[in-house]
Write a protein that binds this DNA or RNA. Sequence first.
DNA 1: ACAATCTTTCAGTAGTTTCTGAACGATTAA
DNA 2: TTAATCGTTCAGAAACTACTGAAAGATTGT
Lengths: 176, 176
Amino acid sequence: MDTLELVKEKFILHWGEMGSLWGINRTMAEIHALLLISPDPLSAVEIMQELKTSRGNVSMALRELIAWGIVNRVHHKGERREFYNTEKDVWVLFRVIARERKKRELDPTIEVLRQSVKDLECLSSQEAEYERKQLKNLLEFFETGIQVYEELEAQAPHSILKLLGQALSLKKRISG
Amino acid sequence: MDTLELVKEKFILHWGEMGSLWGINRTMAEIHALLLISPDPLSAVEIMQELKTSRGNVSMALRELIAWGIVNRVHHKGERREFYNTEKDVWVLFRVIARERKKRELDPTIEVLRQSVKDLECLSSQEAEYERKQLKNLLEFFETGIQVYEELEAQAPHSILKLLGQALSLKKRISG
DNA sequence: ACAATCTTTCAGTAGTTTCTGAACGATTAA
DNA sequence: TTAATCGTTCAGAAACTACTGAAAGATTGT
């Protein structure tokens, strides 16, 4: 087996592992990895063969990936088959994922926290007091997180993290 | 059931859900939530009763949480039982988790990418070229991520995200 | 209309993770 | 020593998630 294939396989497997650590399943992550390093869009059959998995599984995983906004369908005219593509720019990818995770995780959490703090507002036992304090802290944390997210979203066409790094060292130079 | 208990339960359940979305299991996340809003350290039995789960499960989950560095054992003298505590400062908690995730996820990924790029260095087919380009981009992304992480780690005793927000708006004011 | 080629769906299965509870070990007190 | 109380471990059960493959749906060509 040649180097290219070996590296490809290692990368795909690793990406699959990482996928499971985050909330997405192995097949999804593997497909994403495969598309990321493929110069051209691939058909479902090619993906299926490359990853040695079933047709149905590929179909379901692609559906999910498309829902995440990470994969696009590509239609070649005069072709019956559909082809699939992923966003190739890592930084753009990061933004898409960040937006989706915010929607799925941050927003609902903030909602729960806001409601909880509100519900506890009128109680005055020791315990309620403490709980309210803690939940308020959490809420503040997540709200700041969202602010940072929006700051990023608003200005960054590219190189989000790089920008962050610059911003931080800038701040360090100026204020201490 | 009173408001306090209701809010407590809702928060614990929600935190448990979120935990599963990230890589940690429900019980771990629930225990963490419970400790976070408890004014005082709790014993294993109290946790067990509060979450309606088994003794063994609590023991295992606590072991994991301690391994993450999120929960501490507290020994009261003259007490046979152990009590358990979590870091109450959300910002500190964030740092601990960030460090751990870096170690478990970022570092190994960077390792794979470095090795892969190196392995591809001497190949020159179209495909190898493209693959190398993509992996290099990924590598750059993760390396920048780590830089930002270290920047944060180095300076922030508190309010990490807040700092980030400030840094960003500062940068915006100065440079565009 | 029929065949060919592709996608989607979903019931059932395989595989994985989480949880339970009984067994065991350690510590303290009587 | 024995009983009581606590923590830990781990085999097996339960719950959950991912995957397969056959069936059905869609589209195109003959």
